Simulated assay, not measured.
Amino acid sequence: MDAAYATRDPVQAELAARVAGIGHRARTVSIATLASEVDAIRAAALPHGLYPAVAVTHAIEAALARGERGALVIGWLDILRDAVACDRHDGPACETYLAACSVRLSG
């Protein structure tokens, strides 16, 4: 894991590693596999209160459902990695990450 995204929280560290793994495989696996792996991140983040990460996973899942692939999804995985490492877990933090996803979408 990149030192810039290192965290002391073992859950966040494990999720960040999983996001990185998804990113490495994103160009070669099916949309269904990507969606399943992103959903697993959401399911793991939710009980730990990592709400910005949960919000971003919903945006990624919606993009995958629309058939998005390639650089756009890779960009959203970068945002997800940041959201996983975020120390804030409130509504405004979720809105900030969703706005970042929106900016990526409009490019």
Score class of each variant (00 low, 15 high):
Glu61Pro: 00
Ile31Trp: 01
Ala100Asp: 06
Arg18Phe: 00
Pro52Thr: 06
Glu95Phe: 08
Ala85His: 08
Tyr97Cys: 04
Glu95Pro: 02
Ala4Phe: 02
Tyr5Ser: 00
Arg25Trp: 05
Tyr97Phe: 15
Ile22Pro: 04
Val56Phe: 13
Asp90Pro: 04
Gln12Val: 02
Ser30Asn: 08
Asp82Pro: 07
Leu77Cys: 09
Ala85Trp: 00
Val38Pro: 02
Ile31Phe: 02
Gly67Pro: 08
Tyr5Leu: 01
Val84Tyr: 08
Ala44Gln: 12
Leu105Ser: 04
Ala32Glu: 13
Asp87Ser: 12
Asp87Cys: 06
Val54Tyr: 03
Thr96Gln: 10
Ile74Phe: 03
Arg88Ser: 13
Val56Trp: 15
Val11Asn: 05
Trp76Leu: 14
Gly70Trp: 12
Ser106Cys: 09
Glu14Phe: 07
Cys101Gln: 14
Ala83Met: 11
Gly49Val: 13
Val56Pro: 05
Glu61Lys: 01
Ala13Thr: 07
Ala35Asn: 03
Ala59Leu: 04
Arg81Leu: 12
Leu72Val: 04
Ala53Met: 11
Ala40Arg: 13
Arg18Ser: 01
Gly75Met: 11
Leu46Thr: 06
Pro47Thr: 12
Arg66Gly: 00
Gly49Lys: 13
Leu98Met: 14
Arg69Ala: 03
Ala16Gly: 10
Thr33Ala: 01
Ala63His: 00
Ala35Met: 00
Arg8Gln: 13
Ile60Lys: 01
Asp78Leu: 13
Leu80Lys: 07
Ala35Cys: 02
Ala6Glu: 04
Gly67Leu: 09
His89Ile: 14
Asp78Arg: 15
Tyr5His: 07
Ala17Trp: 05
Cys94Met: 15
Ala4Leu: 05
Ala63Cys: 03
Val56Gly: 01
Ala55Ser: 11
